[in-house]
């Protein structure tokens, strides 16, 4: 059994401890918001936060989560209020197919936690590990900028 916290709730899962965290989230815990894009750690669609660090869950064996805390895209709006990055993406219709968006939201939310005043170049650079094939890049960057705390 591997025990860890997901979006604030303690969970225990069985099975092979080498199973990717992504598979456990989607199949055992029903958290399908974290998407499978490549399984190779190269697209960012499966990003989650593990104890404060953004990691590709497809490359994270579940044993690495033991005793730690995981936040998924579902956790960003757990209280029923979308995260500011999510609201800004919806306000600006900053997506096309939306498959890339879960991983982008997770990455961008973590960035704004650490660097609340990140500028466009910094946002784009932080998202370079996330691929978007539909070409929504600039809308997404603009949405992340709009989600920053209003500077007083």
């Amino acid at each position: 059994m591997t025990g860890f916290e997901v979006n604030g709730t303690r969970v225990e899962v069985g099975g092979d401890p080498d199973t990717p965290l992504l598979t456990v989230l989607r199949d055992d815990l029903g958290l399908v918001g974290t998407r499978f894009g490549c399984g190779q750690g190269l697209c960012g669609a499966c990003n989650v936060v593990l104890d404060g660090a953004v990691v590709p869950s497809c490359q994270t064996p579940v044993w690495q989560a033991e005793g730690r805390s995981v936040t998924t895209v579902e956790g960003l709006s757990a209280d029923g209020t979308p995260h500011p990055v999510q609201s800004a993406i919806l306000d600006r219709q900053a997506a096309q197919c939306g498959f890339c968006i879960s991983g982008i939201v997770v990455r961008a939310a973590a960035l704004l936690d650490e660097e609340p005043t990140a500028d466009a170049a910094r946002v784009a650079e932080a998202l370079d590990g996330n691929l978007c094939r539909c070409g929504a890049h600039r809308r997404i960057v603009d949405a992340v900028l709009a989600a920053r705390e209003p500077t007083a």
Binding site: G33, V73, L76, S77, P82, Q86, I89, G98, F99, I101
Partner: peptide, 11 residues
Amino acid sequence: LPDKVLGRPRF
């Protein structure tokens, strides 16, 4: 888009 941005099942 709401389903897709909020990480709900859709795909």
